[in-house]
């Protein structure tokens, strides 16, 4: 088993954190994992992205040209990464911030209104990265939902109210992800 997941968005959208949660969840399942950030000038407000490699064998190259799963949280990320999805892979689009559809027929694309989910359940779009994490698991099935839920629970353990809302957002993203992948 080898999954290479690239998550991309604006700096400040929490996309690096989303990647870390995913990596920790994989570690919790005793899988081999590497989390590789983009670093450098991009950190300051531009496009931020990270790649999470999850495998049942030691991770060789942490540098991935064509990930089998890509999450695009904003339009610049979509433009940059849409051509890179591995054939047969999954492209997850944050439809709250872009109305776009890939012409590629060799990939599965899933539209999830991540900001909207967050706004509906918390009043702000700040937890869009949690929504997309749920959607990613739902649409790809790369890890059991419980493992992600456990990581999110651990991360927000000191803020029960925030945790409660985020778990709802995670669940909603997951459900929409499962549904979208079916259709």
């Amino acid at each position: 088993m080898l999954n290479e997941v690239t998550l991309a968005g604006f700096g400040g959208q929490g996309i690096m954190t989303t990647g870390k949660f995913l990596a920790e969840a994989a570690l919790g399942k005793d899988l081999e994992v590497a989390w590789v950030p983009s670093y450098g000038p991009e950190m300051r407000g531009g496009t931020a992205y990270c790649t999470v490699v999850v495998s049942d064998r030691p991770v060789g190259s942490p540098i991935v040209n064509n990930p089998n799963i890509i999450v695009a949280m904003n339009r610049p990320s979509y433009d940059k990464f849409e051509p890179m999805v591995k054939s047969g892979g999954l492209l997850l689009i944050n439809s709250s911030l872009m109305d776009v559809k890939s012409d590629r027929t060799d990939i599965i694309q899933v539209q999830i209104p991540c900001n909207q989910i967050s706004i509906d359940l918390s009043g702000t779009g700040r937890s869009a990265n949690i929504a997309v994490l749920g959607a990613l698991i739902g649409a790809s099935g790369i890890l059991p939902y419980e493992t992600i839920e456990e990581v999110v629970t651990r991360k927000f353990a000191k803020k029960p109210k925030v945790l409660d809302i985020n778990l709802k957002i995670l669940r909603k993203g997951y459900e929409l992800g499962v549904e979208a992948a079916k259709g």
């Binding site: 870390k20 081999e32 994992v33 590497a34 989390w35 590789v36 950030p37 670093y39 942490p62 540098i63």
Partner: peptide, 10 residues
Amino acid sequence: DGLIAQMMEP
């Protein structure tokens, strides 16, 4: 190198 310093692994 920068990769090994910046990446996270178990």
